[in-house]
Design a protein around this nucleic acid. Structure first.
Lengths: 317, 317
DNA sequence: TTATGTATTTGTCATGGACAAATTGGTTGA
DNA sequence: TCAACCAATTTGTCCATGACAAATACATAA
């Protein structure tokens, strides 16, 4: 059916696996893998099997394994490792909706998934839907993906469906005069935008004004937007694929670029492994934390808000 | 107000400007710019002014200028160049909605923009809205951005608003039994997803089944999805920022990975500058081309579709 | 057990050279 | 005048190797 997959150049492999060229070359020397062939001009070309194995390695590294322990392993060993990570949940405990959704994804039935989710949304209401359905489902999808049970495109599909359901649900509930004014986005290396959508849904429902910039906004532009939009809180989302070591410096840098009055929150699975947030920033490993943080902000600013309000009222003729 | 922006490392500059480390180092040698300072370890650190100038240069390169002509220029010269690109349209000719929308963006009024667009959508209907409002508006926004009149984040904001309006309009019109079955996405280096959304709206309205994988799907995964979803047509979108030289090889590679029965279409502003499509692929520089291509596909497959239909009918007991 | 210090691992950066692919500009012929 | 061709130049990407800070693992003392 398909033409056999052709070998890839080093930059193609960087794109497909997310491993930088430097890393690919270093591993070759240090661990003896990958071992790309060379083309007529001496440049590395990676056969598809090696690219697959690299993908697998990347997945395992994303869940905390170290290169020295896995890069030199055979594909079988890697698969075994990936499988052993999965602690099966008793089927009775795994919510039915979750099993159903994964099943639909595997059966390539995006429309069915959309309908199921939409029905669930109507049943539960937006808050519980986000917290009790989408969040665990995200986790389950991420887990399944890291075990190699889902293709990348199936994950894309999942994202699209959830996004369309959530966006549809959110239309109209965002109050442009709501406070606080929250800016949500991700940094340039983070393409996953589901997290910000979920948080936006929760916060908007609580009366905050949520402004999403989508994904991959440069720091400087975030700072510009904060200034122009009179933002109170910036929420960044980091998925599991974001290099954890880069999160604190990135947060610190953003922190430094903003006035002290603007809060910086970081959420998403990528922040769960972090111990300390840089000073002046706040970690929100779970969605509950986001709501709690909103509470805190409100009580801290209660006096200010009401004085602002009375000022606005008294200034009216 | 803000802490003065700190100098950036080479990888931070790569992230912020989209210029690779290799390119940054080579320009330093070849053109004498940038001229980063060095930190205590001898590593390059780029002052914010140089990063800004690099952004400006990148913009000019995206519209076709060559490094040797611009990299060594002063910021003033660059700004003059950028300004001179703008051939002012007689205000009378520029549709009011366009001026309004740009104005709202500059005034940082996303909600106003959303309302205006939504009203316009109801007035025009989806097809004309996409073709006559969103498409020229996209162009105007892109132009304004390339002249430096819009910030990156303002463009993000624009994208978010248009996306939410289009997605809302599309709910329910996608028929899962429609033909052809169209897969829409972008390649890994292309983050702009508006194009596929616009095409999806048009095609779905014409009765095609549109499956969007969102942005940045690896080639291999596109091939997987095509197989699993019994796709008839793959539509890729390339914005102006995608390196034009990489489009033909990418299309050719995708073409090679799919069976001949699956068509490959490429649309978006990035394809306008291309002369020839690789054999077996089709270029759709404008939205009209997409509709025309759909017509062509339908007439080419008319016989097949009806025989398929009758087969399905007769196979029913 | 918890701290603390040392060793190792690992990603990123630097340098400088090579070259293919793309672009430019000039020349020739219809 | 235009198109097609060729040579010179430009430009991005790749290679090899070495260096080193930061992160992590490990062992030892409190």
């Amino acid at each position: 059916m398909n033409t056999p997959t052709p070998p890839l150049s080093i930059s193609a492999v960087e794109r497909e696996t997310g491993l930088s060229k430097d890393v690919l070359r270093k591993w070759e020397v240090r661990y003896g893998f990958p071992q790309p062939l060379r083309d007529a001009f001496g440049e590395r070309i990676y056969p598809p099997e090696q690219v697959n194995r690299l993908r697998l390695i990347k997945r395992l590294m994303d869940i905390g394994m170290r290169p020295s322990k896995i890069v030199a392993r055979t594909e079988e060993e890697l698969l075994a490792l990936a499988a052993s990570r999965h602690v099966a949940m008793p089927p009775a405990q795994e919510p039915e909706i979750e099993t159903n959704a994964l099943e639909m994804l595997r059966r390539h039935d995006p429309e069915g998934l959309r309908h199921t989710l939409h029905r669930q949304l109507l049943r539960q209401g937006l808050v519980r839907f986000v917290q009790d359905t989408i969040a665990p489902l995200n986790h389950a999808v991420g887990e399944a993906w890291s075990r190699g049970e889902l293709e990348v495109y199936e994950e894309h599909l999942y994202t699209e469906v959830v996004q369309s359901v959530l966006r549809a649900a959110m239309t109209g509930i965002n109050d442009r005069h709501g406070r606080p004014r929250v800016l949500l986005t991700t940094l340039p290396e983070e393409p996953h935008g589901l997290g910000i959508l979920m948080v936006a849904a929760l916060l908007a429902l609580e009366g905050a004004y949520c402004l999403s910039l989508g994904t991959q906004t440069p720091l400087e532009e975030i700072a510009n937007a904060v200034k122009a939009q009179a933002i109170d809180i910036v929420v960044l989302s980091f998925s599991i694929i974001y290099p954890p070591r880069r999160i604190p410096p990135a947060l610190a840098e953003l922190r430094q670029r903003l006035t002290a009055a603007v809060e910086v929150w970081a959420g998403g699975a990528g922040t769960a492994r972090l111990h300390h947030a840089p000073t002046g920033t706040r970690l929100l490993p779970t969605l509950e934390d986001a709501l709690a943080a909103l509470e805190d902000w409100r009580s801290a600013h209660a006096a200010l808000l009401s004085s602002e309000f009375s000022a606005a009222v008294t200034s009216q003729p």
